[in-house]
């Protein structure tokens, strides 16, 4: 019975999303053909000038790529600070008041359940076009995600140092700062670096809705069918993502060591 339900759900999903063997059969070659079409014609004899023609816009694209990275950086930093601070209020074992804890947990949940792109769409209207809307969107979502991770770390801290501090007369703020925070910081920083990697990717795609950076340029190139620009920008983007991932991984290993 359960198996039948699952099969029915899968069948229905294929129906509503218009997936069919025929479309797949036609769709896969269409996609490879499309990707192939975006690649430049490169001949060995004219390799240098062909590649130069392909990357003709690099003087414009690199600053845009840098803006995308800065948006991810600023957004992650904002989100990490906000998430970390809120998680102390939200942790079940540390919260100053259970009701405040529950409210903060709901707030964090809301912040991470709404997709970044939806925030970006709203913030573009409120804050105008430009990177600020993107940073705030990334930051809000990151605050929810990092706040939850920090909350889970906090709920598993070793309680004895905290009890000792409380016994010697430390107030809540001091207990958190000197008792709980040092225990979770290495783990939290590692999560934050990981979030930065994710945010670089997100930062590029929220550019589609007008928050600037390389994503916006890519969106325009795609919509105007400027084939070779599409592949050139994607290559730059993928390279930047790969380099930042490597850097962040090195940093995370250092943290773990």
């Amino acid at each position: 019975m359960r198996r039948l339900l699952i099969l029915a759900a899968i069948g229905a999903s294929f129906y509503v999303s218009e997936v069919s063997p025929v479309r797949l059969w036609n769709g896969l070659p269409a996609m490879t053909g499309y990707i192939w079409g975006t690649l430049p014609e490169v001949r060995l004899a004219t390799l240098g000038s062909d590649l130069a023609a392909w990357m003709w816009g690099w003087k414009r694209w690199l600053p845009m790529l840098w803006e995308t990275i800065l948006m991810a950086y600023a957004g992650t930093l904002l989100g990490a600070v906000a998430g970390l601070l809120l998680s102390f209020l939200a942790a079940r074992n540390l919260t100053p008041h259970p009701a405040l804890g529950a409210a903060t947990r709901r707030l964090l949940e809301l912040a991470r359940t709404v997709p970044e792109l939806v925030y970006a769409l709203l913030f573009v209207i409120a804050f105008g076009l430009g990177p600020l809307a993107g940073v705030l969107a990334l930051g809000l979502h990151a605050a929810g995600a990092l706040g939850k991770l920090s909350l889970e770390l906090l709920e598993h801290v070793e309680p004895r140092p905290l009890e000792g501090m409380r016994a010697s007369g430390a107030n809540w703020l001091e207990t958190m700062r000197f008792g709980a925070a040092p225990q979770i910081l290495p783990g939290f920083l590692s999560y934050t670096l990981f979030r930065f990697e994710l945010n670089v990717r997100s930062s590029a795609v929220i550019g589609f809705v007008g928050v600037g950076g390389i994503g916006q340029e890519l969106y325009v190139a795609t919509r105007q069918f400027v084939y070779q620009d599409i592949s050139a920008i994607i290559v730059l983007l993928v390279a930047a993502v790969a380099i930042l991932d490597q850097l962040s991984e090195v940093a995370r290993r250092r943290l773990a060591a």
């Binding site: 218009e18 036609n26 990707i35 969106y219 069918f225």
Partner: peptide, 28 residues
């Protein structure tokens, strides 16, 4: 690795061009 480092929304943008508007592009 390459196909993973490209975000789903970017793939969607490309697939809309390749197979047309609609949910099928999203699935792909």
């Amino acid at each position: 690795d390459l196909s993973r480092s490209i975000d789903a929304l970017l793939w969607a943008l490309l697939f809309v061009n390749a197979v047309g508007l609609g949910p099928f592009a999203g699935v792909m």
